[in-house]
């Protein structure tokens, strides 16, 4: 981002902040709009968009710091990770991110960001306090999916064109293993107990499950829906339910969320959402699931108890990432 653009973004966000922002009165879901260069803030109680903040170019990955004091945004085409004050919507500063950051994951100690540099086949590790690059690790082509074990010891980068999950030891910042997955892996999630790693493969149409201790493949999950071509069932974003019993899988152009029972590996439900569903976020009280629907430009709200969609919320163009902000 040029200084001029930065200033412009800053002044615009200040103006918006004055009119719209304030301390969160209710739990919120923050959604990046990839083709609008904005973030939409959704009130979890009223299910209305309460604020829209400008960001850098092509915002995709988004996550709150673990203490919820800062929001990190991958501004892919600005080649920066931006740090936003969620109280005001103001961009505080950029972090050095490497080129074309797409997704990232924050370490459990809230200090390091592991960033996938899609165009450079690199995972960049940034210290969010010193704002310095700590390490750059060569991975496969088009890195995207980023996961970190609950104990912070293993970081996973998946590479879309190399079709692998790269296991990175966070103490040495070295790759300790590479496991082949199906074509075009998109997302990596550890189970809450840290024992399993789930990796979605968009073109392969599968989710592979690995034993974290041995890196052995435990199972591979496929999807099937009547009247939808198998090649349209393209798993991308995933979230574990907080109790670790279920995984919700976004199926991209199939416009559905699959619900997978972790114990039996069975797909128990398919939930219709908007078009080209990318990623998911639970409300902080875990009663609602929010999905970003890229092509329809909206967010579907799913009632987790009944597994039914309850509302569609219009946001910006091509919503992509989502992250939850609790009130406290």
């Amino acid at each position: 981002m040029t200084p001029r653009r930065c200033l412009l973004a800053l002044s615009t966000s200040l103006t918006l902040a004055l009119t719209l922002a304030g301390p969160a009165l209710a739990d919120e879901i923050w959604v990046t709009n990839e083709l609008d260069d904005t973030i939409s803030v959704i009130d979890v109680d009223t299910l209305a968009v309460t604020a829209t903040y400008p960001t850098g170019q092509r915002p995709r990955g988004v996550t709150f710091s673990r203490d919820i004091s800062r929001l990190y945004i991958c501004a892919s085409d600005s080649n920066a990770v931006q740090v936003m004050d969620p109280e005001t919507g103001e961009i505080l500063h950029d972090l050095p991110s490497g080129a074309d950051p797409e997704q990232f994951v924050i370490s459990p100690d809230d200090r390091l960001l592991y960033i996938a540099n899609e165009d450079d086949a690199i995972t960049t590790v940034v210290d969010t306090e010193s704002r310095k690059v700590v390490a750059q690790i060569d991975v496969g082509i088009e890195p995207e999916g980023m996961g970190i074990s609950p104990d912070g010891k293993i970081q996973i980068t998946t590479s879309e064109t190399t079709n692998m999950a790269h296991w990175i030891d966070t103490e040495t910042q070295q790759i300790i293993a590479n496991t082949l997955v199906d074509s075009r892996p998109r997302h990596a999630e550890f189970s809450p107990d840290g024992k399993e790693l789930w990796v979605s493969a968009e073109v392969g149409g599968t989710v592979s499950i690995f034993d974290v201790a041995t890196q052995a493949e435990l199972a591979k999950i496929s999807f099937a829906l009547p009247n939808i071509r198998p090649e349209k069932l393209q798993p991308v974003g995933m979230r574990f339910s907080p109790d670790g019993a279920r995984v919700f899988v976004a199926l991209g152009p199939a416009d559905h969320i699959a619900v997978v029972d972790v114990a039996t590996r069975a797909v128990t439900d398919y939930i219709l959402v908007g078009r080209r569903v990318w990623h998911l976020a639970f409300s902080p009280d875990n009663t609602k699931l929010f999905t970003t629907n890229g092509v329809s430009g909206d967010v579907t709200v799913i009632d987790v108890a009944s597994l039914t969609p309850v509302k569609t919320i219009k946001v910006g163009r091509f919503p992509w990432g989502a992250s939850a902000r609790p009130t406290d």
Binding site: A121, G140, I141, S159, T161, T162, N163, M164, N178, L180
Partner: peptide
């Protein structure tokens, strides 16, 4: 070739 070479390098 450079796309597949990375997978090949790891395998």
């Amino acid at each position: 070739l450079s796309d597949i070479a990375t997978t090949g390098r790891f395998l």
